[in-house]
Design a protein around this nucleic acid. Structure first.
Length: 472
RNA sequence: GGCGCGUUGGAGAAGCGGCUUAACUCACCAGCCUUUCACGCUGGCAUCCAGGGGUUCGAAUCCCCUACGCGUCACCA
């Protein structure tokens, strides 16, 4: 039994996508569960769109999520380098060996010619594909193309009528026919850089990858890759295609669905543990009735058998709920630290802790803390709801508010416990209790019937603001 | 259009031929708790598993067809 070796191989053409993060996570968990290696490789063969910034973002995002690799980019390993543009000779050699065996050939067709051919086929109602124009060029033809200054690509000769079956780890047996592939496909572009379908195969084989877990969008690429494995005389790894993550409209999640990269969630104040927990539950389900999982627990529980075949809609609601759950369990100092960046100005340590304590049960993300700032900073309150209006008009309200205001004005330090005592005393003196006691004060002070503890909120507001709000 | 994959409630899902009068979680609704709010707790929320045929003593679970959704058909990955 060969060692389990899996990989996450993103192309650095943008920030780490939520779907990519889930692929990475599943690979990582599978490796951990099976005691294997997890490798990160950069597929940067698209020079146009690849950027160093994207690569950095991807690495940072993975690390932030707690997904680390034991071989690959930055840290190296026995099969270095792990960036495809640094491995060009490897692909050239592989392509040459295919050429030598007559399984690949130079193609001098220009993009215009290919495009024209494709258009013709489409007009005839046929599936657009490459017809193999350059399969059997004579030496003379080659010479004249070269003389024209044409730079050839290398195409792979697709054998006709071949049945290609994938024994997919999550979908089972999937069969394709080589005739449906679309003709001889390019393996080396005219600039000498390999295409995705070629480079993955070469790297996955050479890096001894045992299992490939990737998004379902790659399923239809697999037959091409299988062909290359066969041509090179290599044994293919096991494939597992995990279903897509969908937006609310049930189409593949993309930029138009809003926040789609991991950094977006980091910036909005989500905890990496919550995101990981959430992502794990998208397309995978545990075999027990538990919904909270730390990374460590996931490493123990994960199994390919429990990965779902059907796509999953990204439910931001559930993510928020999960995040709120983790936020509530955070030590106060960590909560305070998380909130701090979202405040308008630096807060004093003591106040910050009080703020964290006050908001702890009311936040879904760190950035939610901002919403409470106007309330605390003495800015004007939002208009009351009719229901709140009704409560504030109650008979007992005026004396209560006045008494409370009086006692507050006599208080030297605005301290949450003291304020709570004042509320209690007011209740006793006026013989009011329960909602009749707290609600009017809450509404007067915050303009709302819901929210954090009023005595804590009041302590945060300070005497001036409290008294100003009580003038009703 | 060809090929491929998928279809259990508003969302994530369990279910692998009888234990299912379809778990569990989010959302939603009702109530309890807390002298307020929130947390938490309790209960409600699919007479039914896209539709139609079959196989079987018995099907959400197996087979076929239809519909719908999505993916993919690049010198992008």
């Amino acid at each position: 039994m060969n060692k389990v070796r899996v990989r996450f191989a993103p192309s650095p053409t943008g920030p780490l996508h939520i779907g990519g993060a889930r692929s990475a996570l599943f690979n990582y968990l599978f490796a951990k569960k099976e005691g294997g290696d997890f490798i990160v490789r950069m597929e940067d063969t698209d020079r146009e769109r690849s950027s160093e910034a994207s690569e950095e973002n991807i690495k940072e995002s993975l690390l932030w999520l707690g997904i680390n690799w034991n071989e690959g980019i930055d840290i190296g390993g026995p099969f270095a380098p792990y960036r495809q543009t640094e491995r060009l000779n490897t692909y050239k050699e592989a392509a040459q060996s295919l050429m030598a065996k007559g399984m690949a050939y130079y193609c001098y067709c220009s993009e215009e010619e290919i495009e024209a051919q494709r258009r013709q086929l489409t007009e005839k109602g046929e599936t657009p594909r490459y017809l193999g124009n350059c399969r059997n060029l004579s030496q003379d033809e080659i010479r004249s193309f070269e003389a024209e200054g044409r730079k050839p690509v290398i195409r792979f000769k697709v054998p006709p009528g071949l049945s290609l079956t994938i024994n997919d780890g999550v979908r089972g047996k999937v069969v394709f026919n080589s005739d449906e592939i679309g003709g001889d496909f390019v393996i080396i572009k005219s600039d000498g850089i390999p295409t995705y379908n070629f480079a993955v195969v070469v790297d996955d084989y050479l890096m001894k990858i045992s299992h490939i877990l990737r998004g379902e969008e790659h399923l239809s690429n697999t037959p091409r890759q299988l062909l290359i494995y066969q041509a090179l005389g290599w044994e293919a790894p096991e494939f597992s295609h995990i279903s897509l993550i969908l937006g609310e409209d049930r189409s593949k999640m993309s930029k138009r669905h809003g926040s789609v990269s991991v950094v977006n969630y980091k910036d909005q104040g989500y905890l990496p543990g919550a995101l990981v927990n959430f992502l794990a539950l998208l397309g995978w389900s545990p075999d027990k009735e538990e919904e909270f999982f730390t990374m460590g627990e996931l490493e123990d529980e994960f199994s390919l058998q429990r990965v779902s075949k059907s796509p999953a809609v990204f439910d931001i609601n559930k993510l928020r709920w999960l995040n709120a759950h983790y936020l509530r369990k955070l030590p106060l100092n960590e909560l305070a630290e998380g909130i701090a960046p979202y405040l308008d100005e630096p807060w004093q340590e003591e106040d910050l802790i009080l703020l964290a304590d006050t908001l702890q049960n009311h936040l879904e993300t760190f950035s939610d803390a901002k919403k409470y700032l106007p309330l605390i900073k003495g800015e004007s309150l939002p208009p009351l709801t009719p229901e709140a209006e009704e409560i504030i008009k109650g008979e007992q309200v005026k004396p209560l508010v006045e008494l409370f205001a009086l006692k507050i004005s006599q208080l030297e330090y605005m301290q949450a416990d003291e304020i709570k005592n004042i509320i209690k005393t007011c209740g006793k003196e006026l013989n009011i209790k329960g909602a009749a006691l707290f609600m009017p004060l809450r509404i007067a002070l915050t303009g709302s019937q819901h929210g954090p503890d009023i005595h804590k909120l009041a302590a945060l507001m300070g005497k001036k603001t409290i008294l100003a709000r009580l003038k009703i």
